[in-house]
C-alpha cells in the first residue's frame, strides 16, 4: 500500500500546484511546460522502466502533432483528430519497435535506428513544400509547416473551443491522469515484467515470457504518450513545423530525463518543466545561447549527477534517515549495460 500512498501524495501535490500555478506564471507558458512534462514522461517510461533508450522520441511527438493537424483540417471537429494524434504514433512505434526488437538489436543500434528514423521523417516533411504533397485537403507545407487547423474543442461542439485557461486545466489533468495510469501500469504484472526485462532480459525469456513482444508493446505505449503530447502541442502552438521532428527536440527529451532522473516517473516530468522553464528564461534575456547552457547541464549531469535530481534527493532523504522507499538502480544498470553492448 506504500506504493499507492506515494502515488496519491504526488497527485495531491501536483493538483494543488496546478491550482496555484496560474497565479505565478501565465497559463500559456505553463501549458507548454506541462506538455513537455508529458513528453518527458513518455521517454521516462520506456527508458527508465523498460531500459529502451530511444534517440527519436521527438519522432512520435512530431507524428502526433502532424496527425492531429492534418486530420483536423480534413475533419474540422477535434475529437477524431485527437484520437488519431495518439493512435498514429502508437501504431508507428509498434511497427518500428517490432522491427527492432524482433531483430534483437542491442542498445547502441537501437539508438542509431531511432535517430535515423527521426532524421528521415524530418527530411521528408521538410521537403514537402510543393503543392503535390497533400493529404485530403491538407497541404503538408514542407518547412513552412501546417497552420490554420481546428484547435481542440469540446467533443461534438466544434465552436466550443478549449483554449487559454481551460486548455491549461485540460493539459494538466491529462498529465495527472496519464501519470496515475503509468503508476498503475508499472505496479501491474505487465510493468513488473517490463522492469524485469530491463534488469535481465535473458532470465525473463527463460521464464517463458516473450520479451520481444512485451518490449514492442511498451515502446508503443511510449509512442502513444509522446503522440498525445504532440497533439496537445499542436493545439497549443496552432501550427506544426518539421522542427518538431528535429534531433534537438529528441536531445532535449533525453536531457530532461537524465537531469530529472531515470527509474522514476516524477523525475522526467520535473526535469522537463524546470529545464524548459530555464530555457524560456534564457531565451528571454538573450545574453547566452540557451543551447550552450543546455549542453553544459547535460555534460555536468552525466558526470556528477548520473542518477538525476529526483532519485538523488530520495537517496539523501534515505541517508538522513527519513522515510523514502523508492530506489533507482539507473546508474549501475546503465554502466552494466553499456559494458555488455557492441
Amino acid at each position: 500500500m506504500g506504493e499507492f500512498r506515494h502515488a496519491a501524495t504526488v497527485i495531491a501535490i501536483a493538483f494543488v500546484a496546478m491550482l496555484i500555478g496560474p497565479s505565478l506564471l501565465d497559463t500559456y507558458t505553463l501549458t507548454v511546460l506541462i506538455i513537455y512534462g508529458l513528453l518527458a514522461l513518455s521517454l521516462g517510461l520506456i527508458w527508465g522502466f523498460g531500459g529502451i533508450l530511444c534517440f527519436g522520441q521527438a519522432a512520435f511527438f512530431g507524428l502526433g502533432a502532424y496527425a492531429y493537424a492534418i486530420a483536423a483540417i480534413n475533419v474540422g471537429e477535434s475529437t477524431v483528430p485527437f484520437l488519431l494524434g495518439i493512435a498514429v504514433p502508437a501504431a508507428f512505434a509498434f511497427v518500428l519497435g517490432a522491427m527492432m526488437f524482433y531483430g534483437r538489436l542491442s542498445d547502441v543500434y537501437l539508438g542509431v535506428i531511432t535517430l535515423v528514423v527521426t532524421l528521415i521523417l524530418f527530411k521528408f516533411v521538410n521537403s514537402t513544400a510543393g503543392p503535390e504533397y497533400v493529404i485530403g485537403t491538407a497541404r503538408l507545407g514542407g518547412f513552412n509547416g501546417v497552420p490554420g487547423f481546428q484547435t481542440l474543442n469540446v467533443p461534438g461542439y466544434p465552436n466550443w473551443y478549449i483554449y487559454d485557461r481551460s486548455f491549461y486545466y485540460f493539459c494538466a489533468v491529462t498529465l495527472l491522469v496519464v501519470y496515475a495510469l503509468m503508476r498503475w501500469l508499472i505496479a501491474s504484472p505487465f510493468g513488473r515484467i517490463a522492469v524485469a526485462i530491463r534488469e535481465n532480459e535473458q532470465r525473463v525469456e527463460l521464464m517463458g515470457y516473450d520479451v520481444r513482444f512485451r518490449k514492442t508493446v511498451l515502446f508503443a505505449i511510449g509512442g502513444a504518450i509522446a503522440g498525445l503530447a504532440g497533439t496537445l502541442f499542436a493545439s497549443w502552438a496552432e501550427i506544426v513545423t518539421p522542427g518538431l521532428f528535429s534531433l534537438a527536440q529528441s536531445a532535449e527529451v533525453i536531457v530532461w530525463c537524465i537531469v530529472g532522473g531515470l527509474g522514476t516517473l516524477t523525475g522526467p516530468v520535473i526535469g522537463a518543466m524546470i529545464l524548459a522553464f530555464l530555457k524560456f528564461l534564457l531565451g528571454q534575456q538573450g545574453q547566452f545561447d540557451s543551447t550552450l547552457i543546455l549542453g553544459l547541464i547535460l555534460v555536468l549531469s552525466v558526470l556528477f549527477l548520473p542518477r538525476g535530481v529526483v532519485p538523488s534527493i530520495d537517496l539523501l532523504r534515505k541517508r538522513a534517515g527519513l522515510s523514502g522507499r523508492r530506489t533507482a538502480p539507473g546508474r549501475r544498470r546503465r554502466r552494466a549495460r553499456s559494458m555488455a553492448d557492441v
Binding site: V195, N200, R203, E205, L206, M207, G208, Y209
Partner: peptide, 27 residues
Amino acid sequence: DPHWIARLGIGVKTQVPSVMDGLSVRE
C-alpha cells in the same frame, strides 16, 4: 526461441546467477 521452450514447462538455471537485481526476492 528460448521462451517457447521454457513454456513447455522447463526451468533453467544459467551458469552465472541470472536474476533481476533491481527487483525484490519475492518479485
